[in-house]
Simulated scan of single mutants.
Amino acid sequence: MAICLEAAGRVIRKRDPADERQVIVGLTNEGLSMKAKARVCLEINRVTGLAVAGRARLRKELNLLRFSMETASADACQ
């Protein structure tokens, strides 16, 4: 799994200088970003109690709301 995550640019792996048998795995900036997004998703799950389908509907509705607000804002500036 670490090899796949490394190939995707989400983690870095290096040998432990104190023990060459050990590998140290750390998050890249992209990995840290994914970790933060995962925390947000977990918090949304906890607060809303929505199942996967409910979260998908919520995301769709929020995206529509954001688009409507951006459109209204752009129209007001013209």
Rank of each mutant, 00 (worst) to 15 (best):
M1R: 03
I3Q: 15
C4N: 14
L5T: 02
E6N: 09
A8L: 14
G9S: 09
G9I: 08
R10N: 08
V11P: 06
I12A: 04
I12M: 07
R15W: 03
A18L: 12
A18C: 05
D19I: 03
D19Y: 01
R21V: 02
Q22V: 12
V23K: 06
V23M: 07
V23F: 03
I24F: 04
I24C: 03
V25I: 15
G26R: 15
L27H: 08
L32Q: 14
L32C: 12
L32P: 00
L32W: 11
M34L: 15
M34Y: 14
K35A: 07
A36Y: 11
A38C: 11
A38F: 15
C41S: 09
L42R: 07
L42E: 05
L42S: 05
N45H: 01
V47I: 11
L50V: 01
V52N: 02
V52P: 09
A53R: 06
R57P: 01
R57C: 04
L58W: 10
L58G: 01
R59S: 13
K60G: 02
K60W: 07
E61P: 06
N63R: 14
N63G: 04
L64N: 13
F67D: 15
S68F: 09
M69V: 13
M69Y: 08
E70S: 02
T71C: 00
A72L: 15
A72W: 15
A72V: 11
D75N: 08
D75L: 14
A76P: 03
A76H: 02
C77E: 11
